[in-house]
């Protein structure tokens, strides 16, 4: 499988990364190089093999459904580029 310019632009859109026409053209070649390299996986017979979900046999630990942390609104917004009274500010989303 290989990607074309339109696919690269669609993927960039999905990934929310702005790309210029030059970027997109360069990325077509790079992605195809990498996809060509990983193509060899298709030759492996995986019939009856379960996909890995965890490298170690871990059972998720449970804990009581209780509040263990909080009252940190100032800490949470401390690194935000733009805030107002502990709200994150973004460009208008709804007209």
């Amino acid at each position: 499988m290989s990607v074309d310019l339109a696919t690269v632009k669609r993927v960039a859109r999905l990934a929310r990364i702005a790309v210029t026409e030059d970027d997109a053209n360069r990325i077509v070649g790079e992605l195809n190089g990498i996809l060509g390299f990983v193509e060899q996986l298709s030759e492996v017979d995986v019939s009856g093999v379960e996909p890995m979900t965890s490298v170690t046999p871990i059972t998720m630990r449970r804990r009581p459904d209780a509040v263990t942390d909080g009252d940190k609104a100032d800490d949470i917004v401390a690194n935000a580029p733009l805030t107002d009274r502990n709200f994150f500010l973004v460009p208008k989303v709804v007209e």
Binding site: M1, A15, L31, L41, V44, V46, V49, P51, M52
Partner: peptide, 25 residues
């Protein structure tokens, strides 16, 4: 971009699922 592509609709089984099965092996 590679990650977004291999997880996107229509490619998930061919790439991601296949890779996770190979990982089991």
């Amino acid at each position: 971009m590679i990650g977004t592509y291999v997880l996107s609709a229509g490619y998930y089984d061919a790439y991601y699922l296949q890779a996770q099965k190979v990982r089991t092996l």
